[in-house]
Computed example of a mutant assay.
Amino acid sequence: MADTLPPPRLLPSGDAAITVEFSRTIDDTANRKVLALDRALAAAPITGITETVPTYRSLLVHYDPTAVDYDTLGAQLMALATGPLPLDSQTRRWRIPVCYGGENGIDLEDVAKALKTTPDDIVARHAAGRYRVAMIGFTPGWSYLSGLDKFLHMSRRESPRLLTPAGTIAIGGIQTGIQCLAGPSGWHLLGRTPVRTYQLHRDPTFLLEPGNEVTFYAIDTKMFAEQERAAEAGEIIAERVAA
């Protein structure tokens, strides 16, 4: 993995966690290092670590201060973070359906107007992207994706909505994302997917993982309704794509 970043920083996070920060901005190179460090710790656990939480640009490491102290753990983490970290050789790739526009994507026309183009162009650009799952967070299954076409970069809404539908596909800033559960959002809603990235009683509970790759394809409202019913019954719907 090419090293184009400054050395990582260790940041104390309360009295029982350390943040290993690889960058101060959203950056794919930093994110790959975050995920590689997370895999390294999973493969060879360090005594005292109780949980790791990968984000876009840092790894939050929770630990038991009765089992290991900050300085000792910090030195171990820094040694790993600054050493060679293996790339993920088993990246999963997913193809996910989206019903764009209309009641499923209520911001599509406004986004097109703001970017001085057509709704069809927005859909074509968004569906043509090849995205990486950079992190999962905010609510269960909420998948933050990097790789959004620069043409589609735009500020988030001035007034966030208190409730947006489950399955919403949206853009905000330099990101796109998949919102699995209904909830608040300040992003621009382009469409919805019937795919459940999180389903409590399904195996797997979480469909997408950080480091996975995602592409989208457009479906009509009839297909959306059919796939929505299948997803409610526990079907995966998303297509696993060969490397």
Rank of each mutant, 00 (worst) to 15 (best):
175 Q>I: 00
39 R>W: 02
29 T>S: 14
29 T>W: 01
163 L>S: 15
46 I>E: 11
127 A>L: 01
204 P>S: 07
7 P>K: 10
237 I>R: 07
156 R>P: 09
202 R>Q: 10
216 F>Y: 14
95 R>A: 12
229 R>G: 10
91 T>Q: 13
139 T>S: 15
69 D>S: 12
132 R>K: 10
33 K>D: 01
81 A>E: 04
88 D>H: 10
12 P>D: 06
125 R>T: 13
229 R>T: 12
136 I>Q: 10
124 A>R: 14
82 T>M: 09
101 G>N: 02
217 Y>A: 03
90 Q>I: 00
148 L>I: 10
14 G>W: 10
36 A>W: 01
129 G>P: 08
18 I>D: 02
212 N>G: 02
107 D>R: 03
48 G>A: 08
201 H>R: 14
107 D>C: 06
35 L>Y: 03
23 S>P: 06
188 H>V: 04
201 H>Q: 14
159 S>C: 05
174 I>T: 15
224 F>C: 02
141 G>N: 09
219 I>H: 04
77 L>T: 06
242 A>H: 05
202 R>W: 01
71 D>V: 11
64 D>W: 05
189 L>I: 14
21 E>K: 13
225 A>E: 14
25 T>I: 13
243 A>I: 00
176 T>Y: 06
191 G>F: 05
26 I>F: 15
70 Y>I: 05
98 V>P: 05
229 R>W: 00
180 C>K: 01
200 L>Q: 12
77 L>V: 09
56 Y>H: 13
132 R>V: 04
50 T>Y: 00
180 C>E: 07
153 H>D: 06
129 G>C: 11
42 A>W: 00
13 S>Y: 13
177 G>M: 03
178 I>P: 10
127 A>E: 07
243 A>D: 11
185 S>V: 10
228 E>H: 12
104 N>E: 02
90 Q>H: 15
114 A>Q: 14
191 G>H: 06
177 G>I: 02
153 H>Y: 09
156 R>Y: 04
16 A>F: 08
193 T>C: 06
15 D>Q: 13
200 L>A: 13
112 A>S: 08
175 Q>R: 11
203 D>Y: 09
194 P>H: 06
131 Y>C: 07
23 S>F: 08
237 I>D: 06
234 G>W: 00
28 D>Q: 12
179 Q>K: 12
36 A>M: 01
175 Q>F: 13
106 I>F: 13
41 L>K: 00
